Amino acid sequence: MEVRTIKVFTTVDNINLHTQVVDMSMTYGQQFGPTYLDGADVTKIKPHNSHEGKTFYVLPNDDTLRVEAFEYYHTTDPSFLGRYMSALNHTKKWKYPQVNGLTSIKWADNNCYLATALLTLQQIELKFNPPALQDAYYRARAGEAANFCALILAYCNKTVGELGDVRETMSYLFQHANLDSCKRVLNVVCKTCGQQQTTLKGVEAVMYMGTLSYEQFKKGVQIPCTCGKQATKYLVQQESPFVMMSAPPAQYELKHGTFTCASEYTGNYQCGHYKHITSKETLYCIDGALLTKSSEYKGPITDVFYKENSYTTTIK
């Protein structure tokens, strides 16, 4: 009895394709271990004539594949690729409408935090270190965002349907971005203890939790000093293409032309909904596939993004 075979390709990165001759009487799992086709788990399936010449994702289970996976995804987590594939199996079914010149995501599976993050990423200057993220990001900007969303979920250790947080998501993504040249110098002034300067680099240099107003941050924000008295913390120097200011959701007025974009969060910790506000020729609110415009805006804002380049204080 002759062994019926077909020729397929296996890959971990969709760049390096490895030619395989597979036995049609055995499952993919018996031949390769966990195997995925377009995100779908085909591990328990036997090869079919229609699979001839198709590319299958496999887990990096030998040295060659491990090197290829690390170079593309910059992670050695053995569960990463499987999590990416199972997320992709959902995100490829989502709709990605162009809204006001940006790629958004039609609401499904509690994905409003991903839509808000995706919209924000198209408006701030950011370059990702893992080629996987950078490639998928370019495709997302062009309207094909399924891979990018699935990668975000995998890097953030999230599953489809789980509630997510924009600030946490951005923080994970910033860790995989090139923020080497970003720098922030802060000064804390206390009447009792004097003053202390701190220099922050990388992710810490672009994120701040405690106030939404970048102007206020430049002037000074009140913080408790270690001595128990009130101290003032203010920005001395900022070198970065953008800054992200966050605070627990509270009524906040966004003035046209003073910011790049913002995240609105309605609801409580267990259950809520994100919308995205962007400042173009007027203010726009993007909620999944829905767009509304207004000249002014007041609502429960939790993150505001500002364009920056270089700032030095005039406070002496």
Results as ranks from 00 to 15, higher is better:
Gly53Met: 14
Met26Tyr: 11
Met170Gly: 02
Thr103Val: 11
Val8Leu: 10
Asn187Lys: 14
Leu235Val: 10
Ser279Cys: 08
Arg141Gly: 07
Asp287Thr: 07
Ala177Ile: 00
Tyr269Lys: 14
Asn309Ser: 13
Gln270His: 10
Asn49Ala: 13
Leu133Ile: 04
Lys158Ala: 06
Leu151Gln: 02
Glu215Lys: 07
Gly257Asn: 08
Gln196Arg: 14
Glu253Ser: 12
Lys54Gly: 12
Ala250Cys: 10
Thr278Pro: 00
Gln222Asp: 07
Ala140Trp: 02
Glu71Met: 07
Ala247Tyr: 00
Ser86Tyr: 08
Lys92Trp: 03
Leu173Arg: 04
Val3Met: 14
Gly143Trp: 03
Leu121Gln: 03
Pro47Arg: 04
Gly53Lys: 13
Gln195Gly: 08
Tyr269Thr: 15
Asn14Leu: 08
Val236Ser: 05
Cys225Met: 00
Leu102Pro: 05
Thr159Ala: 15
Lys316Gln: 15
Asn89Tyr: 15
Thr76Trp: 11
Pro78Cys: 10
Asn147Thr: 12
Thr120Asn: 11
Glu52Ala: 14
Asp23Leu: 13
Thr226Ile: 12
Lys191Trp: 07
Thr11Pro: 05
Asn129Met: 07
Pro249Thr: 01
Cys112Asn: 03
Glu308Gln: 07
Gln123Ile: 04
Leu212Lys: 04
Ala150Cys: 02
Met207Trp: 07
Thr198His: 14
Phe148His: 04
Thr192Tyr: 10
Gln238Thr: 02
His90Tyr: 12
Gln216Ala: 13
Tyr234Leu: 07
Asp23Phe: 11
Ser310Leu: 15
Lys183Gln: 15
Thr198Ile: 15
Leu126Val: 14
Trp94Gly: 04
Tyr284Ser: 10
Cys156Ile: 08
Ala117Gly: 05
Asn49Arg: 13
Lys93Ser: 11
Thr198Asn: 10
Leu37Gln: 14
Met26Ala: 15
Asp63Thr: 08
Thr266Ala: 09
Pro300Phe: 14
Leu173Cys: 07
Gln30Ile: 11
Ser104Lys: 04
Tyr311Trp: 10
Pro60Ser: 07
Gly220Thr: 03
Lys7Thr: 14
Lys54Gln: 13
Lys54Tyr: 15
Gly101Glu: 06
Asp77Pro: 03
Leu133Trp: 02
Thr11Cys: 04
Gln134Glu: 10
Val58Trp: 03
Gly228Trp: 00
Asp62Trp: 07
Thr226Met: 10
Thr314Pro: 09
Met26Cys: 14
Leu283Arg: 00
Thr5Pro: 10
Thr35Gly: 06
Met209Ser: 15
Ser79Trp: 08
Gly82Gln: 15
Glu264Arg: 00
Thr282Met: 12
Thr211Gly: 08
Met24Ser: 12
Gln197Ile: 09
Pro249Cys: 04
Cys225Lys: 01
Ser295Val: 15
Ala132Cys: 06
Leu118Ser: 05
Ile124Asn: 04
Gln222Ala: 10
Val236Met: 11
Ser50Arg: 11
Tyr284Thr: 12
Pro60Met: 06
Ala205Leu: 01
Gly228Ala: 00
Ser86Ile: 14
Tyr28Gln: 05
Cys193His: 02
Tyr113Glu: 02
Ala150Gly: 05
Met24Gln: 12
Asp13Asn: 14
Thr278Arg: 07
Val203Pro: 15
Ala247Cys: 10
Arg184Tyr: 01
Ala132Pro: 05
Asp41Ile: 11
Thr260Phe: 06
Thr192Lys: 11
Phe305Gly: 00
Asn111Lys: 04
Val189Cys: 11
Glu71Lys: 10
Ile223Tyr: 10
Lys298Asp: 11
Ser171Glu: 08
Thr192Cys: 09
Leu133Lys: 07
Pro249Asn: 00
Leu88Asn: 06
Met170Pro: 02
Tyr113Gly: 03
Ala145Phe: 02
Phe305Cys: 01
Asp135Ala: 09
Ser50Lys: 12
Leu212Asn: 02
Ile15Tyr: 11
Ser79Arg: 13
Gly288Ile: 00
Thr43Asp: 09
Tyr311Thr: 09
Leu163Ile: 02
Gln237Asp: 07
Lys316Pro: 15
Phe174Arg: 02
Leu126Pro: 07
Glu215Tyr: 03
Asn129Ser: 10
Tyr274Cys: 02
Phe80Ala: 02
Val12Asp: 06
Gly267His: 11
Thr302Pro: 00
Ala87Val: 05
Met170Ser: 07
Val188Glu: 06
Lys219Tyr: 05
Lys7Leu: 11
His273Trp: 02
Gly164Pro: 01
Ala262Pro: 01
Ala142Tyr: 11
Arg66Cys: 13
Thr169Val: 12
Ala154Tyr: 01
Lys93Arg: 12
Arg66Met: 14
Lys201Phe: 12
Phe174His: 02
Leu133Gly: 04
Lys93Glu: 11
Lys307His: 12
Met170Lys: 01
Met170Gln: 02
Met24Glu: 11
Pro300His: 11
Tyr252Pro: 03
Thr312Asp: 08
Glu239Cys: 10
Ser263Gln: 03
Tyr234Ser: 07
His74Asp: 05
Cys261Lys: 03
Glu264Asn: 01
Tyr36Gln: 05
Asp135Cys: 06
Ile152Arg: 02
Thr116Leu: 06
Lys92Ile: 11
Thr159Pro: 06
Thr313Ala: 14
Glu144Trp: 06
Tyr234Phe: 10
Lys106Arg: 09
Val67Gly: 13
His273Val: 02
Tyr155Thr: 00
Glu52Pro: 08
Asp63Gln: 10
Leu283Trp: 03
Arg4Cys: 13
Ser263Cys: 12
Val42Met: 13
Thr312Cys: 11
Thr266Phe: 08
Lys298His: 15
Arg184Ile: 05
Leu59His: 15
Asn16Gln: 08
Ser246Cys: 08
Thr226Ser: 15
Ile152Tyr: 03
Thr258Ile: 07
Lys95Asn: 11
Gly101Phe: 03
Lys229Gly: 15
Gly143Gln: 03
Tyr138Ser: 14
Gly82Phe: 13
Tyr84Phe: 10
Glu308Asp: 08
Cys193Val: 03
Cys271Met: 15
Val58Ile: 11
Ala205Met: 00
Gln20Glu: 10
Lys316Glu: 15
Ala150Arg: 05
Asn157Gln: 10
Ile152Phe: 00
Lys54Pro: 04
Ala289Val: 11
Asp77Ser: 10
Ala87Thr: 07
Gly161Cys: 04
Arg139Asp: 10
Ala177Arg: 01
Tyr113Lys: 01
Gly33His: 06
Glu281Pro: 00
Gln270Leu: 10
Val166Met: 09
Thr211Leu: 08
Gly228Leu: 03
Ser25Cys: 11
Asn157Pro: 02
Ile301Leu: 07
Glu162Asn: 02
Tyr113Met: 02
Gln222Pro: 14
Asn49Gly: 12
Tyr214Thr: 01
Pro130His: 03
Leu17Lys: 11
Ile315Glu: 15
Tyr28Lys: 05
Pro78Asn: 10
Gln251Trp: 13
Cys225Val: 00
Ser263Asn: 14
Gln230Cys: 03
Thr282Asn: 11
Cys112Ile: 04
Ser240Val: 02
Gln175Asn: 09
Pro34Leu: 11
Gln237His: 15
Asp38Val: 11
Ile124Tyr: 02
Val3Ala: 14
Gly267Ile: 08
Leu291Ala: 13
Leu179Gln: 03
Asn111Ser: 01
Ala108Asn: 06
Asp135Arg: 08
Asp77Trp: 05
Gly143Asn: 02
Ala289Ser: 11
Leu133Asn: 02
Leu153Ser: 04
Thr232Cys: 07
Val99Ala: 08
Lys293Asp: 10
Glu68Val: 03
Gly257Lys: 03
Thr35Leu: 09
Ala40Thr: 11
Leu114Trp: 00
Gly143Ala: 04
Thr260Tyr: 07
Glu296Thr: 13
Asp180Arg: 08
Glu125Thr: 08
Cys182Ala: 09
Ser25Leu: 12
Gly272Ser: 00
Tyr214Cys: 04
Gln216Met: 09
Val206Thr: 00
Lys280Ala: 14
Val12Leu: 06
Asn129Phe: 04
Ser104Val: 05
Thr192Trp: 07
Gln123Glu: 10
Asn100Val: 05
Ser213Met: 00
Asn129Val: 08
Met244Cys: 02
Cys225Arg: 00
Glu204Val: 06
Thr302Glu: 00
Thr266Cys: 07
His176Gly: 02
Tyr269Leu: 15
Thr55Gln: 09
Tyr57Met: 14
Lys158Leu: 03
Thr199Gly: 05
Ser246Asn: 00
His176Glu: 06
Tyr284Glu: 11
Tyr208Gly: 09
Tyr72Thr: 07
Leu37Asp: 13
Ser104His: 05
Glu125Val: 05
Gly267Gln: 14
Gly29Phe: 08
Glu168Thr: 13
Cys225Ser: 01
Glu239Lys: 11
Trp107Gly: 04
Gly202Phe: 01
Thr103Phe: 09
Arg167Leu: 04
Gln30Asn: 07
Thr27Val: 13
Val304Gln: 00
Ala136Asn: 09
Ala117Gln: 00
Ile301Phe: 00
Val206Gln: 03
Glu253Leu: 08
Thr75Val: 11
Ser213Ile: 02
Asn49Leu: 14
Ser246Gly: 00
Pro300Asp: 13
Met1Ile: 03
Lys54Ser: 13
His256Phe: 10
Ala136Met: 08
Cys182His: 03
Ile277Phe: 00
Tyr155Gln: 04
Glu2Pro: 10
Asn129Ile: 08
Asn268His: 14
Gly161Leu: 00
Gly299Lys: 01
Tyr265Asn: 01
Tyr306Phe: 03
Thr120Trp: 00
Phe259Gln: 01
Leu291Gly: 09
Tyr84Met: 04
